[in-house]
């Protein structure tokens, strides 16, 4: 196998996908998941992680189908539970590089409890949450990140509930690393994913994505491209934000690294305990 860095972008994709096995994929045209998958693959290649060591774990939903298509160790689990499965894998074999791919419904609704506890526990996992603000796989129902007032098949009169800010949530729950990217900014997304993979500790990356089939159609976006423009016009690079006026930042989502801390990592603490007990045993 050639060094991944020497491959051109399309060769790189081909190298890391399972082209013979599972294509064509099931995502709609205009969906943001494919772009995100590309960014993740480039990030893994950039970090030079041996693919035999990479475990991609997902739950249920459109984004959670990603493991089918990538040539790593892949685990498609139950709805909302990928973090718990990933926790078991990583604690049992800390040498593996465990990446969780999930969606807003998967990780913030049914898996919300696992999310906050994974942040608190601080195991060296990377979580990429593709947030399209809706349940795509089941046909467009409201999710915990559907903005207030927006339309979904279970919120025909507009959603009453407030949306979660997933980055504030995970930062508040104690994640070591929190970042937000957007599909429109695919290059930045790739960098954020790479940073998350390199980060020792629990790393969470929210990807602002688009679901043209449901969210877009219900909420008067004329095309996927228009949804991408929305991302361009409504997100601000966190580095640029300090120089901007308050009214310019009004209603905008910050993109970039939003939290980066050094906390003791769980598997390291546990390995130290094992070593200490072994020493004690020798005595």
């Amino acid at each position: 196998m050639a060094e991944p860095r020497e491959l051109n972008p399309s060769e790189l994709m081909h190298e890391y996908l399972r082209p013979k096995k599972k294509f064509p994929h099931l995502w709609c045209s205009g969906c943001g998941i494919g772009t995100t998958m590309g960014a993740i693959i480039r990030a893994i290649a950039e970090c030079e992680v041996d693919r035999d060591r990479v475990v991609m774990v997902s739950g249920i939903g459109c984004s959670s189908r990603m493991p089918v298509y990538v040539d790593f160790n892949t685990l498609h689990t139950t709805h909302g539970r990928p973090l718990a499965f990933a926790t078991g894998i990583k604690v049992a074999r800390p040498e593996l590089e465990v990446i969780v791919v999930t969606g807003d419904g998967d990780v913030a609704a049914i898996g919300g409890n696992h999310l906050i506890h994974a942040c608190r526990r601080n195991i060296n996992l990377t979580v990429i949450c593709i947030n399209n603000s809706i349940y795509g796989m089941t046909g467009g129902q409201a999710s915990p990140t559907t903005p207030q007032g927006k339309i979904a098949t279970t919120a025909r009169y507009g959603d009453f509930e407030r949306a979660f800010d997933l980055c504030s949530l995970t930062a508040g729950a104690g994640a070591s690393f929190v970042a937000r990217g957007a599909v429109y900014y695919a290059r930045q997304l790739e960098k954020l994913a790479a940073q998350a993979i390199r980060k020792k500790g629990f790393a969470f990356v929210e990807v602002v994505s688009q679901c043209p089939t449901y969210f877009g159609r219900f909420n008067k976006f004329k095309s996927p491209v228009e949804m991408l423009y929305w991302q361009r016009d409504n997100t601000v690079n966190v580095k640029a934000a300090p120089k901007m006026a308050a009214e310019e930042l009004e209603g905008k989502l910050l993109r970039g690294v939003l939290a980066d801390h050094e906390y003791p990592e769980f598997t390291e603490l546990y390995d130290k305990l094992i070593a200490d007990l072994a020493k004690e045993g020798e005595k």
Partner: peptide, 10 residues
Amino acid sequence: VGTGFRFHVT
């Protein structure tokens, strides 16, 4: 998992 077989579980 992690020993080179890279299979899919669902």
